[in-house]
Design a protein around this nucleic acid. Structure first.
Lengths: 219, 219
DNA sequence: GAAAGCATCAGGAATTCCCTGATGTTTTCC
DNA sequence: GGAAAACATCAGGGAATTCCTGATGCTTTC
């Protein structure tokens, strides 16, 4: 029987991880890495030039994030599968990912077996989530149902485009004034954005904000 | 001629990267990955149980950092080689690494060739630094020599004990008030310390101060 | 034993922080 | 398709911090 291998594209801004995953997938008879990209922007191009079956993509990337890129991909080609790779199992990322239409979510500390499993699973049209992710989602589901609509719903924790810009400026050491000038808005608006960011992420002050930005590779 | 392969241990808290590097090193006739560890603590154990020739170790790890672990390893066994892997080419990391006695420094976006090259180089007893790292270090050297003794000497960049305490507090997100209370001094004194720190290190504001603290693993 | 650094504190003006509140637009959801 | 939520923009005002200068006593260093 003649069939073609599953075509994989790997997207990550770290070459070593990119090549590492590629190596892990070598020698398998039904999987083939046909392309790699170092950014979301490149990935979008890859979609038309190589039409992979599955994108294995880091969620945290400079420039377009994995989530944004997924939205792009799904808009252009809803049947293309996307598996996001993340270094942390984070409720908000998972939620944003599901909303963007991902087919799988894989922690970075997964085994080769889990990686291959995830590819096989999403190729069958199913979704793949690691046990940790599943546990987290189910626990969250349980908690939400338990206290129902009585308690105030948790606010969104996904930053808007503008908020991310402001965050990047401030965390890079720009003052509010400098940030305002560079973004052509008033200082007051920058203040508000900064406040919203801190509220959304639960960060008490600038120091913690910078720490967050660094931890999440936003600068 | 009978000779043994170079024994490599890989240390990284991300399994995917760990296995990725391992895959990249497979099939080489003079290199063998004999062990992997997911933390600095494990690496120290590995040293006695497996006595590898070279540690390939991520600089950024939860718990013991790559630098700290290197110090440990070099104390126990000075002939064991250590190559640090970092996602960014950072002056302070490199300096701290050299001080700790690393044999090589490899950016995460290196090619497979560079990886293998680094292993061969350090096994010859030489140090391996990527072109970017070399460029950075030489530029720094040049700048230091250029302005000699004619210009006002750069102020000391060594923080006092107290200043480091204050820095750690502030960079961890403590307010001036909180810091003052915990150190049993007035807010004004904390302000002064903070100012001195910024002056010494040439940091314009809190954001840059936090970045410095994180870059230098002071928190 | 003078000079430099260290640790402590103060005054005061500029800036930032943090809260509330507002308006118009866009997105999302049922 | 219309209500609700999120987004982007701005303002007022009190509190906190930043960023200068300057001061005092104590320790370290050459």
């Amino acid at each position: 029987m003649s069939y073609s291998k599953t075509k994989i594209a790997i997207v990550d801004d770290h070459a070593l991880l990119r090549h590492g995953i590629q190596s892990l997938l070598q020698g398998l008879d039904d999987i083939e890495v046909i392309a790699t990209a170092s950014s979301g922007e490149e990935a979008v191009t890859l979609l038309t030039t190589h039409s992979p079956d599955i994108f294995l993509m880091d969620i945290m990337m400079k420039g377009m994030s994995g989530i944004e890129t997924t939205r792009w991909i799904k808009e252009q080609s809803p049947t293309t599968r996307v598996i996001l790779i993340s270094s942390e199992v984070n409720k908000e990322y998972i939620a944003a990912g599901i909303k963007a239409g991902i087919n799988g979510y894989l922690p970075k500390d997964s085994s080769r077996e889990a990686l291959v499993d995830s590819i096989h699973t999403v190729m069958k049209g199913e979704r793949y989530f690691s046990p940790e992710v599943t546990a987290l989602v189910f626990q969250d589901f349980y908690l939400k149902e338990k206290d129902g609509k009585g308690l105030p719903r948790q606010k969104t924790k996904v930053l808007s485009k503008r908020e991310e810009e402001v965050l990047a400026h401030i965390a890079s050491g720009k003052s509010l004034k400098e940030t305002a000038d560079e973004l052509f808005i008033s200082v007051k608006t920058v203040e508000t954005h900064k406040q919203h960011i801190q509220d959304k992420l639960g960060l008490k002050n600038t120091a913690l904000l910078v720490k967050y930005a660094i931890d999440n590779k936003l600068i």
